[in-house]
Design a protein around this nucleic acid. Sequence first.
DNA 1: ATGACTTATACGATAAGA
Length: 265
Amino acid sequence: MEPEKTVPHLGKATTWNVNSLKVRLPQVLEWLSREKPDVACLQETKMPDAQFPHQAFRDIGYDAVWAGQPTYNGVAILSRSPIEIPQTSMDDHPDDHKRFLSARIGGVRVVNVYVPNGQDLDSPKFSYKLEWLERLARYLGSIRSGPDPVLLMGDFNIVPDDLDTWDPQGSKDQIFHSPPERKALAAIFGEGFSDLYRVLYPDRQEFSWWDYRMGNFHRNRGLRIDLILSTPTLTGACREVVIDRQARKHERPSDHVPVTVVFSA
DNA sequence: ATGACTTATACGATAAGA
């Protein structure tokens, strides 16, 4: 008789680029206490590891793993249930930028990414972005054959489709919208991952980021770049994806809002 | 309009974000 398979389960998982965890900590604590996701992936913590506020998260029922650095980047995974087998790198190449963190939680391989911005198509940072995405696709291909379903979430800094930008004409072939970036995202879809928001809502337009300048939030001039992807088992169990626009109305908000997926029991 | 806002670093101005 075969051993009974552990049923993977995550009820609710959130991704949020907080744009400085130091500044945003009170908002993050308040949001987590209210919404109670089982897992939360944070990006742009912008703090060295020694300053990570582990105890503040413990106090509200979350354990954490983190990979930070001063000033830039930085990622963390928070969880209400035990965090197993954390990985701070997607391959053997050392990475100066802390943009990747993964852990096994509830029988699911959770992957948190802060994809490089890229700046402009002719910038060296753009080449770095594409190379980083190629490495990510290879990593995803390698874990896809493993036993655990994969939940991939984070700030992708790519607009998947024209429906996901406020200005499809003006942004054509520009950074975040360019064919090479969309091709890199397509390679991840090619590894069996689905964009859960788009699977559930094929025609809906909501944004997860708005520029601080020009009253862009008030005018709803934004982008959907904070994505939740998963392999087929989890995709089939996905019931709802919520982009919490309200969080952008807070005093001193992040320019990104939390995006949450709810899975069926 | 190479802007506009916010952050870190450091205490003024610059780099970076998206």
